[in-house]
Design a protein around this nucleic acid. Structure first.
Lengths: 215, 215
DNA sequence: CCGCATCCGTTTCGATACTG
DNA sequence: CAGTATCGAAACGGATGCGG
C-alpha cells in the first residue's frame, strides 16, 4: 500500500503541516495575504515555481478550505484566488516564521524579492508615529497596493487608494533597500529607481518607520 | 548542493522554509522543544518517519544551526540532539501553527499521538489558577517529563522533578482524553490506564486547567 | 540493542512544451 | 491569460545491513 502523504499524527502541528506543509504551499498563502490574486500574478510572485506546481498547490489548498476561487465582476470577468477566513488566520504564523527566517543567510544568487514580501516586511517592522495618519499608494511595475499608517501601525491593502497622500513608484528591491536605509531615498529619486508624486514627506515617514522601530 | 532546493527568495518566510520547510523537519523540532532526545526516542515520537529520514533531517538541521549534537556525561555516555538557542526560537512559531491546525480534521486511522504533542497542548492550552504552584511528574512508558504550574502558566521540562507533588503514570492518548474531559480521571484510574502517586489533587488541578481555560 | 548507511520501488518536483 | 501534459531528476518511505 502506498503510504498516504499525511503524517497520520493527531497533533495540531502535524495536521497543519498536512495542509500547508507541502513545498511552496506557504509561499502561495503568503502571496495571497494582502488580497486576491490572479493566477499569472501569483506566478510572477513565485518565479521559482513552475506553473503546474502553482496549479497543484492552489487546487489542494482550495480543496482543504484555505483558498477559494472567485470570479471578478464584469468587465474584468477573470478568476482570482483568495484566502478563506481560516486561511487568513495563517497571517500571524507566517509573520512569525518570516521573522525567525531573517537570520538565515541569503541564498546564493540569483535571489528574487517579490512585492508581497517587501510589503509584509514593511507592515511587520514598521512602527509609524501614533499620530501619523496617512496613506501612500505603491506602484510596482503596474501592480498597485496601498499602505496606510494609523494608530502606530502600517496596514496594507491591494489596489488603489481613494485620496492617497502620495504615490510611490518603484520596484521591490529598491523599496527593501530603502526600508533598511531611508537616507537612500534622495539618491533613488535622483537615479530614477523611485519616483514620488504628492506629499514626499508622507513617503519619508512611511519608509522611515522601519528603521525608527529598530533604532 | 542544497541550494538547488532553495527557494532563491530573499523573503524571510522563504529563507525560513529553506531551513525548516522540508518534510518532517518541523516535527523533528517539535520533538526537541522540551529538551534533548536520543535518536531512538526521536524515532519513537515520529513513528511515520523512516530511520534514514530522521537521520537526514537531523544532519541538515545540525548543519544549518537549528540543532546540535551533544554527548551526555558519563555514565550515560550516549549522544543526544537538542535545539540551539536559535532553534528554540521556533517555539512560538510551532505553537501558532499547531493552534491553527487544530481545525484540520483528524487524518484517517491509524493516528498516532506522541508524548511531546500532548505536553505541548497542555502547556499551550492550560491556564492554571495564578496561585497554583505545584509540580507533577509525568511518566509515559518509561520516558519522564515534569509539568510545573506557577504564575498561571504550565511549564514542561524533560526529566524527573526533585520534590514533585505527584507522579502521573499514563500514556499520551489517555492524557489527551483527560485534558478534554477531566471528569474521566476517576474512570481512567479505576481502569488502570492511569495511576497516580502522591497528591491526587495536584493532578486534578493540572489536567483540569485546560478545560477551565476553554470554559 | 542503538545509531546510522545503503539499496530500491514509488512519489513528487521542476523545466519545457503545449492547448483552450 | 490560465492552466494541462510530459518527462527526467530528485526526494520520500520501507527494508535491510553493519559497526559499536
Amino acid at each position: 500500500m502506498p503510504t498516504s502523504r499525511s503524517y497520520g499524527d493527531a497533533c495540531g502541528i502535524a495536521r497543519a503541516l498536512d495542509v500547508v506543509g507541502e513545498r511552496w504551499a506557504l509561499l502561495v498563502v503568503r502571496e495571497l495575504l494582502f488580497g486576491p490574486q490572479r493566477f499569472s500574478d501569483l506566478r510572477r510572485g513565485l518565479p521559482g515555481a513552475s506553473s503546474n506546481l502553482v496549479a497543484d498547490r492552489l487546487r489542494e489548498l482550495t480543496a482543504r478550505g484555505v483558498v477559494q476561487r472567485r470570479k471578478l465582476a464584469p468587465p474584468a470577468g477573470s478568476w482570482v484566488y483568495e484566502l478563506t477566513e481560516w486561511g487568513r488566520e495563517l497571517d500571524p504564523v507566517i509573520v512569525a516564521l518570516g521573522h525567525w527566517g531573517l537570520r538565515v543567510p541569503l541564498p546564493e544568487a540569483p535571489v528574487t524579492l517579490g512585492p508581497v514580501s517587501v510589503l509584509l516586511y514593511l507592515r511587520t517592522a514598521g512602527r509609524p508615529a501614533p499620530g501619523d495618519d496617512s496613506s501612500v499608494q505603491i506602484d510596482f511595475d503596474g501592480r498597485v497596493w496601498t499602505a496606510r499608517t494609523s494608530g502606530g501601525q502600517v496596514r496594507i491593502e491591494a489596489g488603489e487608494a481613494a485620496g492617497a497622500d502620495a504615490v510611490l513608484h518603484t520596484d521591490p528591491a529598491t523599496l527593501n533597500a530603502l526600508l533598511e536605509d531611508p537616507d537612500g531615498l534622495d539618491a533613488a529619486l535622483a537615479g530614477g529607481s523611485a519616483t514620488v508624486a504628492g506629499e514626499l514627506a508622507a513617503v519619508r515617514r512611511l519608509i522611515g518607520s522601519v528603521a525608527a522601530a529598530s533604532a
